[in-house]
Write a protein that binds this DNA or RNA. Sequence first.
RNA 1: GGUCCGGUAGCUCAACUGGAUAGAGCAUCAGCCUUCUAAGCUGAGGGUUCGGGGUUCGAGUCCCUGCCGGAUCACCA
Length: 592
Amino acid sequence: MNLNQLLKSKIEEAISSLFNTSAGNSQLQPTNPEFEGSHTLVCFPLTKVSKKKPEETAALIGQWLVDNTDLVDRYNVVKGFLNLVLDDKVWVKVFQDILNEEDYGVVPATGEEIMVEYSSPNTNKPLHLGHLRNNFLGWSVASIYEANGYKVHRVQIINDRGIHICKSMAAWKLFGNGETPESSGLKGDKLVGKYYVEFDKACKKEVADLIAQGMDKEQAEKNAPIMKQAVDMLQKWEQKDADTISLWKTMNGWVYDGFDVTYKQMGVHFDKLYFESETYLLGKEEVLKGVEEGVFYKKADGSVWVDLTEDGLDEKVLLRSDGTSVYMTQDIGTAMLRFRDFPNISRQVYTVGNEQEYHFKVLFLILAKLGYAWAKECYHLSYGMVDLPSGKMKSREGTVVDADDLMAEMIGEAEKQTRELGKIDEMDQDEASALFEMIGIGALKFYLLKVDPKKRMMFNPNESIQLQGHTGPFIQYTHARIRSIVRKAATMDIGSGLANIDSLLPNEQKLISFLSIYPDRLQDAARDYSPSIIANYAYDLAKEYNQFYQAIPIFSESDKQKLSLRVALSEKVGEVLRKAMGLLGVVVPERM
RNA sequence: GGUCCGGUAGCUCAACUGGAUAGAGCAUCAGCCUUCUAAGCUGAGGGUUCGGGGUUCGAGUCCCUGCCGGAUCACCA
């Protein structure tokens, strides 16, 4: 039983013994720093059963706890708030329990199994800042679930087919002169992206020409020769034309090679990849089955629809009148395939931007209508857009922040600042460059993950590159400091017994208190699908540790037991920081 | 227009799901390196939590209403 539960049950005892009733669940909260104590009982709701003023009620309970338990050393009452000061021995015991735990904060396997999808890019252009938030989020949520005892499958669906890739193919055929990543030295995804832009430019020009010749805009967009070529390629692709398929494979291959490099730098991976080209037909089958079963209906022109008006939504098309699939059709197929591949998963988590909230609402409803029980367990991990100081990122306006460029820039800045501080004087080349990367990528991940995922966020390049304050490097630095302490302690003869310690300094008590709530934060983060809870916890813990570090010169302590406690406390804080940051995908250094 | 998000210090974000005098970082100002790493610590200034009602012992948080910003409502993905 943890400390909070123990306290609560004692409080229940106090209430039933004092007032002859049970009060249900009592409200226990952390004590405001300006008052003495660690736990505070809010007594206003108890006046109903106590029939006394809040202050009196609080005092009675406080006194009862002092008299009848060995948890509470003393108390004070401010208005209706009962502030409890626990016996220091209780805190020492709490710490001892934490030390005794095999893998603190990690829940043993529960047997539950889920799937987390993230990234899921189109294959016609490189990854950008938005993908970074997506990948870091999905990766982190997956890790958080693992730490909560779940078995997690990390997957993505790759949008490898469709008009977008055909556009790049068409432009490459027209203007490419056989250019390859090898011949040009360009990263594969960048090369294919370049031709996507080329397509857009050429198409716009042709449309303008047609309009100048008197054609209306809509017609012109359809009849631009390059657009016709792209559409033609899409049709040929669906008919499995050998040349088209071959080019498609080649260009997608370039993109995957490029993505691999980016994912590696991001530090994410996937257990299994799904490709739209392999799932869209399954979705189509399922939709046709649904028509037979009367779940969906066919209109006169042959298009297939689902009626969601009873659920407060609209009618939604599932197959075009020409029989081809839409986005929704594919997602139905993908979802089914995944549950077929992994029959034990109880839930799928989709990490996709909030502009697709409606889409997922509809998807889950449809899956439920098709009779799949797991549909209601599916969750759209919806996150807000990343804005730039100049406004929204727009690929057409060239304001997109490229993922590779940004990561390289962060690492470069980390190197610059680290050198300026003279931190690498005693490091060899390998350690130094590993450190630059750790700091640069760590700063970026922390910056993107510290914000509540649901919220839209601002990405200010100057600020994100900053390495002091509420940042990843601040926490990395704290970890490095701790490791330095631990290394020094290892060369000394320090015992490990805490048994006889019966008093703590406030800084020590607060640190133990912080450590003790880590498992709660871990649960909260999973419940809310929110790495920001972990990020902010790690920051608070590091902040608290630095205060302790500054206030108490550890090695000037002559009492062996106290010295031992402080070293053990430091080491444990370091370990929790490392694990918490690990859940964000951030690696922490031994020195920096 | 319908639906769904959001609006907190100059800026970027918190606030343990209804609790105490709303907290951090950045920026500004003033201190702290002979002691375990100053990427740190201490202190100061900075707020009508968008406006207006309501619910109750108590509201940034819940309800109603107005204003502002965004997303979405395709035989696009």
